[in-house]
């Protein structure tokens, strides 16, 4: 019996690890579709719409990568993952990219053997409480019951925050955002804590969003970004520069409206020319076609367009650009040059 257990565990581990290590780009091309890990449903970031088509801010990154590599933004297989299953799914090769509002941390990058390819949303952890509770600061939460998604950095930040401030709390561990929402609305917990963007997205899906407030404290830095496995730098480069292309496109004023015109012939701005492949050989350097970035941008528009469409101020989620504005406008978004 003991043998069986070990054997089973080793089989799983063996199969899981077997898929990793090969060249991801070739795999994706041979498969004809990109396997992209997303959340199990977080409005605005990754959630299926009424027609079952995945939409959202993180989803747009997957679609841009698929467009750059395969030329078709719809050639993506979305794999919903929970906070607990996401890293195993990526490490085992079940998915090629994980775009699931995942915080870039030292230990995930180094110890878990992943490669964060950039930040697509600068976030921080916040708290949401019902207005009726009359709480105005997170430091008043002594003794509160807190709903939290397990397997996240927020779980660790929460423990640190309450310990440092010497106040007690009762954690209620929960697997997915949907369950947390149900528990929170049923009053089984006083507070729901996760990334502030996630809170805004969750609140937007409530029947009465006005009855809930997000407390002013942001207790952590949560740079959220897509990640790939260690050991395949080629693939990491492709995903990294696809994201950079989206950011750079906004900076240079390349939008889905004018991209056809800009890419038809080389223009005055050499940076735009190199980005869109009308000048230089950037695409060929990592094995893609010259117009890879054009396809990526055409999938959903540039970074700014994606932001406005999915989570921006005119959507129910209503997030302002804040830290996620271009560096030219006081934000942190800064793409290295395309040269």
């Amino acid at each position: 019996m003991k043998k069986t257990v070990i054997l089973g565990a080793l089989t799983v581990a063996g199969l899981a690890a077997g898929a990793a290590g090969a060249a991801t780009l070739d795999d994706v091309k041979a498969r004809g579709s990109l396997n992209c890990g997303v959340s199990t449903g977080l409005t605005g970031f990754s959630a299926p719409d009424a027609n079952g088509v995945w939409q959202g801010f993180d989803v747009a990154v997957c679609r841009a990568v698929a467009a750059a590599v395969l030329g078709d933004p719809m050639a993506v297989e979305f794999v919903p993952t929970t906070g607990q299953t996401r890293f195993t799914a990526l490490a085992s090769g079940e998915i090629d990219v994980l775009a699931r509002n995942t915080t870039w941390t030292f230990s995930r990058d180094v110890d878990l053997k992943f490669e964060f390819i950039g930040v697509n949303y600068y976030d921080g952890q916040g708290f949401m409480v019902p207005k009726a509770l009359g709480v105005s600061s997170a430091k008043e939460l002594d003794g509160a019951t807190v709903c939290i998604q397990t397997g996240t950095t927020t779980e660790l930040n929460l423990a640190d925050f309450f310990r440092v401030n010497n106040i007690s709390y009762e954690p209620v561990p929960i697997e997915t955002n949907a369950e947390a929402q149900q528990q929170y609305l049923a009053g089984a917990c006083d507070v729901y804590t996760t990334d502030a963007s996630g809170l805004a997205a969750t609140r937007a899906s409530f029947e009465a969003p006005g009855d809930h407030v997000i407390l002013p404290e942001i207790i952590s830095k949560e740079p959220l970004g897509p990640l790939v496995r260690h050991g395949d730098s080629e693939w990491g480069d492709i995903v990294r520069w696809t994201l950079n292309a989206l950011v750079a496109a906004e900076e240079y004023g390349v939008t889905s409206a004018n991209i056809g015109e800009l890419s038809a012939a080389p223009g005055n701005n050499p940076e735009i020319n190199r980005l869109l492949g009308t000048e230089g050989e950037l695409g060929a350097m990592f094995g893609l076609e010259a117009d890879w970035a054009k396809k990526a941008i055409m999938a959903n528009g540039n970074y700014g367009e994606i932001f406005e469409k999915t989570i921006g101020e005119n959507t129910p989620i209503g997030l302002s650009r804040g830290l996620n504005a271009q560096w030219t406008e006081g934000g942190l978004l800064y793409s290295p040059p395309f040269r």
């Binding site: 257990v5 890293f87 397997g151």
Partner: peptide
């Protein structure tokens, strides 16, 4: 669950867990 997730030690954690249930 959480330990495996925070440390990335899937194989070790699952072996220990299997051993415990055994």
């Amino acid at each position: 669950g959480i330990t495996i997730n925070q440390t990335g030690r899937e194989l070790e954690g699952m072996l220990l867990l299997g051993l415990f249930y055994l």
